[in-house]
Design a protein around this nucleic acid. Structure first.
Length: 424
RNA sequence: GGGCAGGUGGCUGAGUGGUUGAAGGCACCGGUCUCGAAAACCGGCGUACCGGCAACGGUAUCGUGAGUUCGAAUCUCACCCUGCCCGCCA
């Protein structure tokens, strides 16, 4: 959610931000309508406040006269008429405000100056790490998994539907190993506080981080209880401090959390659907950071480094991609994707997405901090990134560490968690 | 899920439908006093929005939303949350 003042005072900056995302064609007219609603809201607000002041004065006079034992019938009639007018105006104010905010809530965040304008063609590979393995002779992860019984897509589909798998045997063990390895690393080495949050959240939380109202169709909703299955731990963890003013001494603050993630993936049928690359339910360890506005750019690099460390520890080659404005998510101001090399499918797989949301989420969720005891509270900046998403990491491990005999060498750092140095 | 009791400012805690944005206390800030501090005393002390260069003025705000009324913290309804008891459950 943007500050209304951006709309009111610097509409050209807002328009320019939408242009860099390639979204001006679709939202340009909306911005104009939004400004019109705002002007209307302002005029109506002033009109209704004037009448409320008059009514309050009249009411005081009624009270005074009653105490004095005088008649106030004329004022009461006057008040009744004013009250009716106020009721009408109040409805109009609310309508204008709602129309304005409905548009404002649907406008994506303004990207930072160092984010390239344009669509995905303008994405920039910032750096790479490791030697991508030659694809020749490397089987895709689903074949390896099938050979060793690591996950069961057929029965997952029977139990739940397509897009769900049951990890089994060493596959299930690998999931648990990743969970422990990631959480141990972030909590013990990178200084994050470990959180085990709720996996069902309410509407206010989903709105706070930007999933609602625009992307309601992407989320699973619980029938009968206005609750949603979380699409990422970002939602419950960022919303931990919703409607709070945090202690400035707490910043910067990092949380790491393992959760399953649930996504309807409406509209993405057929894309990357082989194996476990795109699931309705998957596991992820998420990193969430709160920072001051001044510090958030540096915090994003720090966060990115923590996610990268996981791939380095696992020994999986990857590259860092800075997303162009048009490819950057709705709430994000700047996003780096971490793409790991999967030689079996011959593709770079997005295993992490690290973003700064500036004050976009904090404004929606009303998360503030007091810079100094006497100063006014300011919105914090929120950041988050995967550290890492499990299924694609598993795909990369199975393919990168695949041996000629079809077995898979377990990455050094995972051996104590998996309990073996070889799968299959 | 059923029953009971509650939700008031940073905290605590009053509040007969009519100068209640809200007593009192604590905390906090400024001042007097003091070598300094404490105590005492005096004064100040929420937030958001609108108008104004500003001083300041206005509107809203007592869990949330609706309603009754000239006027609601106070009355009505719904919902949310907290505590306790019962039931159920890992």
């Amino acid at each position: 959610m943007h500050d209304v003042r951006l709309l009111r005072e610097r509409p050209d900056d807002l328009r320019d931000a939408m242009r860099r995302r390639g979204a001006l064609d679709t939202v340009g007219a909306e911005i104009d309508r939004c400004r019109e609603h705002d002007r209307e809201w302002l005029a109506l607000t002033q009109a209704v406040q004037e009448r409320k002041a008059a009514l309050n004065a009249s009411t005081q006079e009624v009270a005074r006269r009653k105490r004095a034992g005088e008649s106030a019938d004329d004022l009461i009639a006057h008040g009744r008429a004013l009250g009716e007018e106020i009721s009408r105006l109040d409805l109009e104010v609310a309508a204008a405000e709602q129309a304005r905010d409905a548009i404002l809530m649907q406008l994506p965040n303004v990207t930072l100056p160092d984010v390239p304008a344009g669509g995905e063609d303008a994405n920039v590979i910032v750096r790479g790490w490791g030697e991508p393995r030659d694809s020749a002779g490397v089987r895709p992860h689903w074949e390896i998994a099938a050979a060793h019984g690591l996950f069961d897509a057929e029965r997952g589909a029977k139990v739940s539907g397509s897009g769900f798998v049951a990890y089994r045997g060493q596959g299930a063990r690998l999931v648990r190993a990743l969970m422990n390895f990631f959480l141990d690393s972030h909590a013990d080495l990178h200084g994050y506080e470990e959180v085990w949050p709720p996996a069902l959240v309410n509407r206010a939380s989903m709105t706070g981080t930007g999933q609602l109202p625009k992307f309601e169709d992407d989320a699973y909703q619980i029938a009968g209880d206005d609750l949603f299955l979380i699409p990422t731990a970002e939602v419950p963890v960022t919303n931990l401090y919703r409607n709070e003013t945090v202690d400035a001494a707490m910043l910067p603050k990092g949380f790491c959390a393992y959760t399953p993630c649930f996504r309807r993936e409406a509209g993405s049928a057929g894309k990357d659907t082989r194996g476990i690359l795109r699931m309705h339910q998957f596991d992820k360890v998420e990193l969430v950071r709160y920072s001051t506005p001044e510090d958030s750019a540096a915090q994003l690099e720090l966060l990115l480094g923590h996610a990268e460390a996981m791939l380095r520890q696992l020994g999986i080659p990857y590259r860092v991609k800075l997303l162009a404005a048009g490819d950057t998510g709705f709430s994000s101001a700047k996003t780096y994707d971490l793409e790991a090399w999967a030689p079996g499918v011959g593709a770079w797989l997005e295993v992490s997405s690290c973003s700064t949301f500036t004050d976009f989420q904090a404004r929606r969720a009303n998360i503030r901090y007091k810079p100094a005891p006497k100063e006014k509270p300011r919105f914090v900046h929120t950041l988050n990134g995967s550290g890492l998403a499990f299924p694609r990491t598993i795909a990369c491990i199975l393919e990168h560490y695949q041996q000629a005999d079809g077995s898979v060498t377990v990455p050094e750092v995972l051996r104590k968690y998996v309990g073996t140095d070889r799968i299959g």
